[in-house]
């Protein structure tokens, strides 16, 4: 199993360390030539969504990534990654890699002083630590999208088909369970596409 981590800006190093801790191969994606490698799943890290969005365009990564995601590639977006994957962004006409039927609010908790750490229930996992940094949340979503976690009445984690999004940063905690949850999605996709593939032990 190999996971690509979009590394244009933001917290890609932390995701790569999480994958390392789970003994999963990963590689950085900075330009289209990096997509030549075999990729079973993709992580879009936190950072500044406007910056990553602009760089996606300027590095010509947007179109090939869109094709891969439409083809069913499992994708995990945290914070800015959630904004990049949203079908709609409140008070904005731009979208980047629209692939999950949610509308998100950028900087929904305000500036840096509104950043916080808490614990919350994550569907199918239990209570996990959650770090929010100038985070977005989901303000509305289509029927096929499933809510995975809520904090203070707001939806902060959801999934639909091959897409998983969280407002918070599991990669900034020592808790590996949300990443494992994503890797199980990747595993499932792998066993669908090549049934003989050996299951990857995820602890």
């Amino acid at each position: 199993m190999r996971i690509g981590v979009l590394s244009l800006q933001g917290g890609f190093v932390e995701h790569i360390s999480m994958l390392k801790a789970l003994h999963v191969d990963s590689f950085e994606i900075r330009n289209p030539s990096h997509l030549d490698k075999e990729m079973d799943g993709l992580i879009l890290p936190g950072g500044e969504s406007t910056v990553i969005g602009r760089l996606l365009n300027e590095t010509s990564l947007l179109d090939p990534l869109e094709t891969l995601i439409k083809g069913g590639l499992p994708v995990f977006g945290t914070c800015a990654g959630m904004i990049l994957l949203a079908n709609s962004i409140e008070n904005s006409s731009s979208t980047y890699l629209p692939s999950i039927g949610v509308t998100v609010r950028r900087n929904a908790y305000g500036r840096q002083l509104g950043s916080f750490h808490t614990e919350g229930n994550f569907s199918g996992i239990g209570v996990v630590p959650m770090t929010f940094i100038r985070a977005p949340y989901i303000v509305c979503m289509d029927e096929e999208v499933r809510t995975l976690a809520m904090v203070g009445g707001n939806i902060i984690a959801a999934e639909s088909h091959n897409i998983l999004v969280t407002s918070f940063h599991p990669e900034l905690t020592a808790d590996l369970r949300v990443h494992k949850y994503f890797l199980r999605k990747v595993q499932k996709q792998l066993s669908l596409s090549c049934p003989g593939q050996q299951n990857y032990p995820l602890g």
Partner: peptide, 16 residues
């Protein structure tokens, strides 16, 4: 400004 932003992302790629 644009060039410096891209140089930080692609700091290891002499062609870029």
């Amino acid at each position: 400004a644009r060039a410096i932003v891209k140089a930080v992302t692609n700091y290891n790629d002499p062609d870029i």
